[in-house]
């Protein structure tokens, strides 16, 4: 098992280098000579300032391989430079204070998706073509097609504006400081309700679909039939024999869809004004704060890579066949 995990880890190394390489290319996307980055409608003076900063930061006057090597050595030391915005704080610090809320959102989303998608998928697979199955199928198609930002707007209109039940932006109410500790937690949670519903919606549709598909395949297998033939209760057959096997591919799908989920937080965070990585990214793009953009890109993709790795290893843990395969591969 350890060997399998290590092998996966080794495979991730070239990907990590690839991430830095692609990000490096992105810096050079700017038209004209690298220094002449378009700075929008800023004045000529600030245009020159930004150019000078960029030149210094990325050593744009040196040959390409030197630039890359220098950039890489700074990355290894987690030095992403300083933000171009007036506060000029280190990029790492800016990202660091926004990372926890984005992680929190994504983890909660993930848990809710799994908690709902698995039973939905199992039920609609075991009762294929039932009313429940048909309703969920419609829900899945609508879920796939709903733009998350639109859903967010509709929910804001309904719950925020019309009914006034839930706050529609930020993380804290104005009177937050005057609330008791528990009230503060409650306030925080109520601010997260709508963003989490929105972020969960699309993913839920996809996952329940995969779960249904996977379950349909498994219940056709011989071992499920023989478990039934043994006289086991249907609940045991489905819950124990079928479900476990049907869950396997889901772990992989989970890993693969992580980039999508994290990418989705860009929109959710911007709409609900949640100070996370996604919102930081959008702000940085508007302000053309290049060091923050690059830092964000590298950190988010590295995190995704890490999460993928975790999913792979989990897959190895739950599926004995993989471990056997790895051992056989060694010979």
């Amino acid at each position: 098992m350890l060997r399998y995990a290590l092998r996966r880890l080794l495979l991730a190394v070239p990907l990590l280098i690839g991430i830095t390489f692609v990000s490096f290319i992105v810096i050079h996307l700017a038209p004209g000579t690298p220094g002449e980055v378009q700075t929008g409608d800023l004045s000529i003076q600030s245009d020159r300032d930004v150019q000078k900063l960029l030149m210094e930061l990325y050593d744009l006057d040196k040959p390409l391989h030197v630039q890359y090597a220098k950039w890489l050595t700074r990355l290894v030391r987690f030095d992403f430079g300083r933000s171009f915005s007036p506060d000029a704080r280190p990029v790492l610090q800016k990202i660091g204070e926004r990372l926890p809320i984005t992680l929190l959102l994504n983890v909660v989303e993930m848990l809710i998706i799994i908690a709902l998608a698995v039973p939905i998928g199992v039920l609609s697979a075991t009762r294929q073509y039932s009313m429940f199955d048909k309703v969920t199928t419609v829900f899945v198609f609508v879920g796939f097609a709903t733009p998350d930002f639109w859903l967010a707007l509709l929910l804001m209109i309904l719950f925020g504006v019309q009914l006034g039940w839930l706050p529609i932006s930020g993380l804290r109410s104005l009177n937050w400081e005057y609330l008791s500790f528990w009230r503060q937690q409650g306030d925080f949670a109520s601010h997260l309700v709508l963003p989490i519903i929105v972020a969960t919606f699309g993913g839920l549709a996809g996952f329940s679909r995969y779960m249904r598909q996977s379950m349909l395949e498994v219940i056709r297998q011989d071992y499920v039939q023989s478990a039934r033939a043994k006289g086991l209760a249907e609940r045991v057959v489905i819950g124990k024999h079928a479900l476990r096997n049907a869950m396997l591919p889901i772990v992989t799908v989970l890993g693969l869809s992580l980039p999508g989920l994290i990418g989705g937080s860009v929109i959710v965070e911007s709409i609900f004004a949640i100070p996370g990585m996604g919102q930081l990214m959008v702000q940085a793009v508007f302000e053309r704060d290049y060091p923050v953009i690059m830092g964000n890109l590298v950190i988010v993709s590295t995190l995704t890579l890490g999460a993928n790795l975790l999913a792979d290893v989990t897959y190895g843990l739950v599926d004995p066949r993989i471990r056997v395969g790895a051992r056989r591969g060694r010979r």
């Binding site: 990907l15 991430i19 692609v22 378009q38 980039p259 860009v266 990214m281 988010v300």
Partner: peptide, 24 residues
């Protein structure tokens, strides 16, 4: 195929935004 793996690691929206920041 490693290139495909690599491109799939980037959350697409972040990559799109980063590229669009440099282009108009």
């Amino acid at each position: 195929m490693r290139l495909v793996d690599l491109m799939l690691v980037f959350p697409r929206f972040f990559l799109l935004l980063a590229v669009l920041a440099f282009l108009r």
